[in-house]
Simulated scan of single mutants.
Amino acid sequence: MSSGLGEQLEILVLGPVVLRQGRAETAIQDGKPAEALLALVSARGEGWVYTRQAVRTWRPPSGRDQLTESAVHQRMRKLREYGVPVETGPRNSGRYRLTPGSCRVDAWDFVAGVQAGADIDELTRMWRQPPSPRILDLLLGSAVGDARRKLIERIAGLDDVAQDHLADLDRFTAIFPDDRSVDRIRRHGPRRRKRLLVVEDDPDMLEEICGRLEPTYRCVRIQSIEEWQALRDRGLDGIDGALVDLHLTPDRDDKRGQDIVSYLCKETEIPAALVTANAPDRSAYGSAAHRKEFRLVDIVDKQQRDWWEPLQRAVRFLVSDAEDDRRHRLETWLEHAFRTVERANASVAPGSVGALQMQDCRVAYGDVIRAIRVEPIEDAASKVDEFCRRWRVRN
């Protein structure tokens, strides 16, 4: 495009701040000139920036003096030296703007694109690479920050299939590695939003559970044993944990959810929690035995007066990276493995080779339990893996 000033200048601020004219790029340092440019960019289009407004907009880091109007004038002059087309208002008006028609700004394009519902990949690609922390702070405090928030909400509202078709999503989220607001749309890495399988036959209850969880987690909804079988046949890749209702028909004794947690236990490494209003055994011993049998991190009783808090606890046990929750999962894996070995050796004769091996297993189990409780978490995890390999139990 061209204007009265010749070839149109592009101002790129969604990344390191540069000016582009044709193929030539000029970097704007991240200090004072860049901040002045961002003040002009935040005005949008042909809007004017008043000097006093700019003084209030810029937030100097702690320990730096507040900006003066004279400092604003100096920064505008510095921008002109870089070639930025800054226009000054009437004498003594204290107003500045980017000369209309002489430039285009990727931040303006981004805000306008979000408002217009433009293609998501096109919008995310406008963020070329990570801006410096100072520039990012200024950007996210402007209309750009509000537009980015709306874009994240739009992406988060897509189902898993639609998100998987976004070619630029992983690169975009990687630009903001420590931004928790971006975690809800991460698909990979330790800070991604964890993916929960939620199995519940009551549609209202399913929506209530997922509605509460989805601001933090991505939920895969399953409402029947047929839907579960279809999902299982497609594959369970990317599932981090499962909340499974015990009964999946109006018959309160069908226990089809038990088939699901049994499959997860035998065929996958996905941790599971059982959610039920009709627990198979309400005694402490019976509940513990059931957890060990199916490698369950928890059993949530929906007949409790406030069952939401136990459900949240179960979700933490399933997918949290907190050390206490990881230790709980390790103990769940170990208890299941030990119970499996015990069952396989239940009929061995006293004094036999099998009995001696079972004695060795009990000693090893005690050692690993102590490691889970007191040793560094990675060392404890290695010992659980070693125990499962030695006694040929899936971990």
Rank of each mutant, 00 (worst) to 15 (best):
residue 248 L to G: 12
residue 205 M to T: 14
residue 181 S to I: 06
residue 391 W to H: 09
residue 152 I to S: 02
residue 340 T to I: 10
residue 138 L to C: 14
residue 322 A to S: 12
residue 185 I to H: 00
residue 383 K to I: 02
residue 310 P to D: 10
residue 302 K to V: 06
residue 238 G to T: 04
residue 34 A to W: 05
residue 292 K to Y: 06
residue 129 Q to E: 15
residue 76 M to E: 13
residue 182 V to I: 14
residue 12 L to E: 07
residue 354 G to N: 02
residue 306 D to N: 15
residue 146 D to P: 05
residue 128 R to M: 13
residue 337 A to T: 03
residue 41 V to K: 09
residue 276 T to D: 07
residue 85 P to L: 02
residue 390 R to V: 08
residue 285 Y to G: 09
residue 190 P to T: 09
residue 84 V to F: 08
residue 308 W to C: 11
residue 106 D to W: 01
residue 2 S to F: 12
residue 21 Q to S: 09
residue 235 G to H: 00
residue 345 N to G: 14
residue 341 V to T: 07
residue 71 A to H: 13
residue 282 R to H: 12
residue 253 D to I: 09
residue 164 D to E: 15
residue 297 V to C: 06
residue 136 L to T: 14
residue 174 A to G: 08
residue 83 G to F: 06
residue 232 R to W: 01
residue 207 E to Q: 13
residue 12 L to M: 07
residue 256 R to T: 15
residue 301 D to R: 05
residue 210 C to L: 01
residue 151 L to F: 02
residue 224 S to C: 14
residue 322 A to P: 11
residue 215 P to N: 10
residue 82 Y to K: 11
residue 378 E to S: 10
residue 89 G to C: 08
residue 380 A to C: 06
residue 51 T to P: 05
residue 342 E to G: 11
residue 235 G to M: 05
residue 93 S to C: 00
